[in-house]
Amino acid sequence: MTRLAAHSRYPVRLSLNDTPVEAEAEPRMLLSDFLRHRIGATGTHVGCEHGVCGACTVIVDGMLTRSCLTLAAQVDGCEVQTVEGLAPSPDRLGILQQAFRRNHALQCGFCTAGILMSLDHYLRRNPSPREADIRDLLSGHLCRCTGYTPIIKAALEAAAELAATTEEKSDA
């Protein structure tokens, strides 16, 4: 049993986008605040802190996770993926990111990180989604700028492209 006292700070170690990171946190510190203000991974955004808007969505041990509804202490030792880990290299966008740019699937970009994480997680497991699947998946995210439809188009385009890329690989 591990007991962390209310007003003390304890080290939290986790793997962030395949890189080990460590910083101290009080028991009450949210994962969203930990990532942003302790680690400096500010790509994950905070929009409501009650689990509705989806801006803070990250992946913890393969599970889509609202980082505002998760304590930093809960993910000690876990693998966390955030928007900072999506691009294949700093000067190149991934297929999904490119599809977003091509389709103008973002405007202010504040909600985008969470949406990208949900889609990245989903498309890896569901390579040929229907539009209704994408709409169902993304109903857990709020976007105020785009009216959503360019996001759905980008997701479907990316899915098709990813499927084609996978086929090529398996053909090889």
Binding site: A41, G43, V46, E84, L86, A87, P90, L106, T112
Partner: peptide
């Protein structure tokens, strides 16, 4: 022309600079 936006690369990779960032 509907060129791609210069804003997007940073926003799509978590490198936006919002006030709390």
């Amino acid at each position: 022309r509907s060129i791609e936006r210069v804003e997007d690369a940073a926003l799509l990779t978590g490198r936006g600079r919002f006030i709390d960032d």
